[in-house]
Design a protein around this nucleic acid. Sequence first.
DNA 1: CGCGATTTGTGCACGCCTTCACAAGCGCCT
DNA 2: AGGCGCTTGTGAAGGCGTGCACAAATCGCG
Lengths: 248, 248
Amino acid sequence: MSQQRHGSTPGGADGVPAFPDLPEATIARLPEYLRALHHLAETGAETVSSEGLAAAAGVNSAKLRKDLSHLGSYGTRGVGYDVALLIDQIEYILGLDKNRAVCLVGVGNLGHALAGYAGFASRGFRVVALFDADPKKVGEEINGLAVRHIDDLERVAVEESIAIGVIATPPGTAQAVADALVAAGVTSILNFAPGVLSVPSNVDVRKVDLAIELQILSFHEHRKASLTALPGGRAPAVANGDQEAVGS
Amino acid sequence: MSQQRHGSTPGGADGVPAFPDLPEATIARLPEYLRALHHLAETGAETVSSEGLAAAAGVNSAKLRKDLSHLGSYGTRGVGYDVALLIDQIEYILGLDKNRAVCLVGVGNLGHALAGYAGFASRGFRVVALFDADPKKVGEEINGLAVRHIDDLERVAVEESIAIGVIATPPGTAQAVADALVAAGVTSILNFAPGVLSVPSNVDVRKVDLAIELQILSFHEHRKASLTALPGGRAPAVANGDQEAVGS
DNA sequence: CGCGATTTGTGCACGCCTTCACAAGCGCCT
DNA sequence: AGGCGCTTGTGAAGGCGTGCACAAATCGCG
């Protein structure tokens, strides 16, 4: 470990201690560990071994140990990891103790569903504002939250100190919405609209394109079909399962 | 290119030629290239340079050239790539010329939206069946398609030769649904339910967890906050944009 | 009190992916 | 016909991430 310890605010009452810079790949896995840990906590487990947690999260145990070691890990050799403690650690690292405010732009087909998605609230996020450009949708109430006009975005975003915005508009308007979000001080964007967004370098963008996911699966279907075409017979479905996942 | 040419069915009427085994990372980017190419085709462009296409797809031009070179690329030095030809190539590789049949299980909040998502149909996929376990939802019609009971899954999947299934159920039932899909001969699954699915090794699974995406963004928010807390002042929003993206 | 069983934390090697830099190829202009 | 500028395709280097295998540490038991 080249990173010398800064001490995670040992006894101090200081707010933000030194921040470990985790590998991107590790960060992407932490939420999965967290979900598995919550599940374990509900079943009453006090501690987990790396082996057990790795299985629950669908990864290699060595990878899990290395990931956890990056955040100064609280594990006990011969015993395992304290579930409650690890949950707190990961939630702190991910910044989930802040109960972050999120706004959603575009209350169409997909946006409507996202506005009502229970999985957000249960995992540390509050959807505090909905926006749409269509006057017919403004005023509509979804899940107890009124849809506002997009012109109010900047004012509301500042008032509610929203740092994360979700774009669920048609592709054509996504860039304009992104610009508006950035102007409103939003520094993280989750984009469901196909296409590339251009934003300042201090803004983080993550993209989710549902069609792309299907296209990747389609490729593997194509590949599998062209393989079983040539060699022996079709394997008869391999009975039971080691699990497998394609990409990340 | 270590793979010697098998000839991509030069004049032959043969169905499936040898399949180039592309790196996973490349496969994941092909759909984005494809989308950018379609956009270019609509604007009437005949050819694109790697630089131009790379910009439209949000990647490095060298990476794009290497990606395209893997599939035996049809580019002309000094000119660029033929847009129409490249579209055909990528669609063939991704197996999109088959207009693949997809079924969707779980017509709840999210599933309802996915059933009506226009982006699927426009990019080579037909949603041909909807399933749900709730008798109250069976019979309901969404976008001209009736919801069937999940017990009919196996029969319908075989009839319609469905190879790709989408899971949009609550987490608790996702594994059971996955098992049913596998039993019905589905070999690719797109899973929106949180949690790890266990499937035979010949089945590909891709997971989309919306909360995880937000949690990753939350981490970067946390990081940015703890960085601007210590060093100089806050950068005043960087005016205009080089673009940036966090992960993939 | 010491020993063995167990599990974490990590040094190391390997492989994949990205990026640079440049030679090879193509078209156009003179 | 010849040369010049532009663009592709790719060899090589560097970085990142993964997985193995083992030393270090802790607990429980005799």
